[in-house]
Design a protein around this nucleic acid. Structure first.
Lengths: 163, 163
DNA sequence: TATTGTTATACTCTATAACTATA
DNA sequence: TATAGTTATAGAGTATAACAATA
């Protein structure tokens, strides 16, 4: 830890990442799926039906929070609950056709927004980003593995509660 | 727009970005500054004192929302309100020493988390990401310029409200 | 007993509308 | 009248604790 903003890879990536997060926040609109809902759509789209518990862990929300979100998404027609034939306690969540369409539409909208930004870039910059994508993917994967072993993570910094 | 997930730069960047957003969401804890609060800390840290209206625009929240957030941050001792000598309507928001420290600590904590992920990467991957950072910075800048001219942005896709 | 999921409850955050003060 | 900011109010979203059902 340091008191000055450093030159480590993480220190350099972080402001960029914060800016990208702000950009995506701009795309959030009322009546559009929330950030976590989009994560669920993506997870179900990529991995098929999943348990509430697994979705909660992967989306990094509490289990009751995921139950509630799945309830809202079910009411919106995006997912359905299916009983697990092998274990009566388990609820499997799967995409409906509408959920799949929503996922594709929202993905296309967000991708188009990013594409519009790419068009403003020097081709050299676009190439640099494109070439970093596999590495960034592996960085995210490392983060998800880190999640699996979540107990030994560092303590968050002390803070004055912003409440 | 397309119904299949495409191969445009935006389409390829988006899933990576979503994963990174999920990663950062994991770092959000109760009693830590929220995502928007961190944005405000960053803006004030980078650009000095600013108006409520400007902060609201740059952080992409409503003006009343920013008033409320500034109120919470003020109560937490992170910022203070200062009258603008030239215009009695204006309230300038500036960082306190505690706010500056909070910003540095949180930045260091997030950066350290990212650094831990970088250590799990192949050096070749780290280099690829490092080399893309200037380009990503310019991509974010393009997005902020797009914000300034916010009126002609595309309509969000139709959606089933997830409520 | 442990695990999966839900319900009950409370709280944070944010938005829109209405309002105050200054230009 | 227009602009800067605040206050009032309501609603979305999420968490913790308590609960029900199944293993």
């Amino acid at each position: 830890m340091q008191t000055e903003i450093g030159t480590s890879p993480g220190s350099q990536l972080l402001p960029v990442l914060s800016g990208l997060v702000d950009l995506l926040r701009q795309l959030q609109e009322p009546d559009q799926p929330s950030s976590v809902a989009l994560t669920v759509l993506r997870l179900l789209s990529e991995h098929g039906a999943g348990r509430v518990t697994d979705l909660a862990r992967l989306a990094r929300v509490s289990q009751p929070g995921m139950t509630q979100l799945v309830g809202r998404m079910e009411k919106a027609g995006l997912v359905r609950r299916v009983a697990d034939p092998g274990d009566g306690r388990v609820v499997l969540v799967e995409l409906t056709a509408a959920g799949r369409e929503q996922r594709v539409r929202t993905f296309a909208y967000h991708a188009a927004t990013l594409d519009a930004l790419f068009e403003q870039l020097d081709p050299h910059d676009s190439d640099a980003i494109r070439q970093a994508l596999p590495a960034l993917t592996r960085l995210v994967d490392a983060g998800q593995r880190g999640m699996a072993a979540e107990t030994q993570s560092a303590e968050p910094v002390p803070a004055r509660p912003v409440r």
